[in-house]
C-alpha cells in the first residue's frame, strides 16, 4: 500500500517498502499466532489482545484495559497486573505507539482507508483536534469509574475486530466498517490520529520510551515532502527535520510518532533511521 509513487531511483522496491512489509508481517503474524490454536490446535498464543498467555507460561495484559478495570473498582488478579507490567516495559523500550503501527489490527484498516482516500483524491477533511483522543481516554476512564464496567470495551474497534477474528465476529464488522468509512470520507487519518484513546494511552507511554525515529542526515533533505505525505502524524517530523537551530536534536521526540518507519522507506535521500532517544 504505497501512499505515494516515489520517483524512479536506484533504491529498489524492497528498500522503498521494507519497513511497511516488516510491519504488515508482524501484524499478521501476531494474528496468525492467535489463530493457530482455534485453527490447528497449536496453543502457542492463547487468549486475545486484551489478555493472553504465551507458551502456557508468560501472561500478557493490555494496560489500558486493566486501568479501566481498576477505575471500575475491581482489584485485578496478580496475573493480570504482572502481564500489564511486562507489556508496559516492552513499549517503554520499543516506543509507545509501536502498538499502533506494529500490533494493532485496526491500523491495517485505517491505512487501507487512507490509501483509498489518496487514490480517489478525496481531499475534503473535517478538522478534528489531536487532543480529542486524550479527552476520549479520560472520558473512558471516568465512564468506567461511574458505571463499574470496562467502558471502552463496549465499543473498542481494536478488540472487536481481533476478538471477532479469533473467537467469532458477530456484528463487530459494523464497527470496523464505520472506522474505515470515517477515515475514508470524513477525516483524513481520523481514527488513529485523532480519536482512538488506546493510541492516546500508548502515546503517553511513549513519552519516555527508548527507540526513536531520527533524521541524522537532515542536511541532505531536498524538501520533496514525501515523508510528510506518508506520515500519519506529520507534525512530529518538523522539529527534527527543520529545526529552529542547527544544534537542535534530529531525534523525533514527539510521542505521537508511531515508529512505523515509513519515512525511512519513502525518503530517497536516506535522511531517516532508527536510533535511541539519545541520538
Amino acid at each position: 500500500m504505497s501512499e505515494t509513487a516515489p520517483a524512479a531511483t536506484e533504491r529498489g522496491l524492497w528498500q522503498r517498502n521494507k519497513w511497511l512489509l516488516l510491519r504488515r508481517t508482524t501484524q499478521f503474524s501476531i494474528l496468525f499466532l492467535f489463530l493457530l490454536g482455534p485453527w490447528f490446535g497449536i496453543w502457542w498464543l492463547k487468549g486475545n489482545l486484551a489478555s493472553s498467555v504465551v507458551l502456557d507460561t508468560i501472561g500478557l495484559t493490555d494496560p489500558f484495559i486493566l486501568l479501566q478495570s481498576l477505575a471500575s473498582g475491581h482489584a485485578a488478579g496478580q496475573a493480570a497486573v504482572f502481564g500489564a507490567v511486562i507489556v508496559l516495559m516492552f513499549y517503554l523500550l520499543v516506543g509507545g505507539r509501536v502498538y499502533c503501527s506494529w500490533v494493532c489490527p485496526i491500523n491495517v484498516v485505517t491505512d487501507a482507508a487512507n490509501w483509498l482516500r489518496n487514490r480517489l483524491k478525496l481531499n475534503l477533511s473535517w478538522q478534528l483536534k489531536k487532543s480529542t483522543r486524550l479527552w476520549i481516554m479520560v472520558m473512558a476512564l471516568a465512564t468506567s469509574a461511574i458505571t463499574g464496567a470496562i467502558a471502552w470495551e463496549a465499543v473498542n474497534p481494536i478488540t472487536m475486530l481481533q476478538r471477532g477474528l479469533v473467537f467469532g465476529m458477530g456484528l463487530a464488522w459494523v464497527i470496523v466498517l464505520a472506522v474505515f468509512l470515517f477515515d475514508l470520507v470524513v477525516t483524513r487519518r481520523g481514527w488513529c490520529s485523532h480519536l482512538c484513546p488506546v493510541g492516546a494511552f500508548y502515546g503517553l507511554v511513549g513519552k519516555r520510551s527508548l527507540v526513536r525515529m531520527n533524521a541524522p542526515e537532515r542536511t541532505a533533505c531536498t524538501d520533496c515532502g514525501d515523508c510528510f505525505r506518508v506520515c500519519p502524524e506529520p507534525h512530529v517530523i518538523i522539529p527534527a527535520l527543520k529545526p529552529e537551530k542547527d544544534t537542535d536534536t534530529s531525534v523525533i521526540l514527539d510521542s505521537d510518532c508511531t515508529n512505523c518507519g515509513r519515512c525511512i522507506d519513502v525518503c530517497d535521500e536516506e535522511v531517516f533511521r532508527f536510533s535511541t532517544r539519545f541520538g
Binding site: 487468549g47 498467555v53 486493566l66
Partner: peptide, 27 residues
C-alpha cells in the same frame, strides 16, 4: 462487578475442556 473485572480475553473459554463457554459476540 463482573463487567468491570472481566477483560474479555477468553482464556477461560480456551481452557474449558468441554467447549462449554463462549465469548459474547457484538450484537
Amino acid at each position: 462487578d463482573f463487567t468491570g473485572a472481566c477483560v474479555r480475553c477468553g482464556l477461560c473459554v480456551r481452557d474449558c475442556p468441554y467447549d462449554t463457554l463462549k465469548l459474547a459476540e457484538f450484537g
